[in-house]
């Protein structure tokens, strides 16, 4: 699909490739990784460094003496926490902008992504035996392709509405028909180019059709379910937010019954209370 890669190349305002997160994922997989390597890596991105220091010195960790030393901060927080902060800082940078083509205001795509990632991680936690960080990261990035396609979608807006409302096509199906590529595939291609691991690329690429993500069906199913739960809870924004296909396969891949979905919504509700405060996601008046 050279044409799609050419298209990605031609997109203006493509966000710069995140350097830290793919490398960090590799590092954390190694046993006994030297923390100085992690410090060296995260110091490449000021937003990550700032997040790590802020978290270390926050009341949440109740540090006796504040530190400005990154090595010290990494030691205090632990690698898993550092990884989550790096992912959050990177995700916020990539996903916070308004995306006019999709009808996202500033911050909405980010809020959606965080809610979906939180939901997917809670499902993974409940089921056990999963790398929860991996589930979180894959789901956090599931809509990254919308950042690429937003401008093109804006150009075919009225046709897109027609496809969804009149012909009952999902958003992804309408994109594929009108643009030759949908946001899921575009996102997968972008992450592949950014050297993210194959499982994350695949989960993003197939987050609307997890069965096709072989051999990473489970990860794609988590992303699918996280995305659905975020929408059901109102953390799904933009035009025709519910133009999504129901895929029972996502439940069967994970061995879940439909009745479990409300349970995960309630878990997500509680978790979002904590997260909203921490990531400062909440509360702008919706009265505009």
């Amino acid at each position: 699909m050279q044409a799609i890669d050419d298209y990605i190349n031609s997109v203006k305002m493509l966000p710069p490739a995140p350097r830290v997160v793919p490398e960090l994922m590799k590092l954390l997989k190694q046993p006994n990784v030297d923390s100085s390597r992690i410090v060296k890596l995260i110091s490449l991105e000021p937003s990550i460094t700032a997040n790590v220091l802020r978290m270390t010195n926050s009341a949440y960790f109740a540090a006796a003496t504040p530190t400005t030393d990154l090595q010290e901060a990494v030691t205090r927080l632990g690698f898993q926490q550092v990884y989550q902060l790096a992912t959050a800082a990177t995700g916020a940078r990539l996903l916070s902008n308004a995306q006019k083509g999709y009808g996202f205001n500033q911050g909405e795509l980010w809020k959606h992504s965080v809610a979906a990632a939180v939901a997917a991680q809670l499902v993974a936690k409940k089921l056990g035996g999963e790398d929860e960080n991996l589930v979180f990261t894959a789901t956090l990035l599931h809509d990254i392709g919308k950042v690429i396609l937003s401008q093109a979608v804006d150009g075919v807006y009225s046709k897109l509405i027609e496809e969804t409302e009149i012909h009952q096509q999902s958003l992804a199906e309408a994109e594929k028909k009108l643009l030759g590529v949908d946001h899921a595939e575009a996102g997968g291609r972008l992450l592949s180019r950014w050297k993210f691991p194959a499982n994350i690329v695949s989960a993003v690429w197939f987050h609307h059709s997890p069965k096709a993500a072989e051999p990473y069906q489970r990860l794609a199913a988590y992303a699918y379910l996280g995305n659905m739960i975020a929408h059901f809870m109102g953390y799904g924004y933009g035009h025709l937010a519910f133009a999504l296909r129901g895929r029972g396969e996502a439940l069967s891949i994970l061995g879940l019954v439909p009745e479990s979905v409300p349970q995960f919504m309630m878990d997500t509700f509680e978790q979002m209370h904590v997260i909203e405060t921490f990531f400062a996601l909440g509360g702008q008046a919706e009265t505009a």
Partner: peptide
């Protein structure tokens, strides 16, 4: 009560 396009009926919370 927003609804996705769900022929399966598994996600009909709305």
């Amino acid at each position: 009560g927003g609804r996705i396009m769900d022929a399966t009926g598994y996600f009909n919370i709305g």
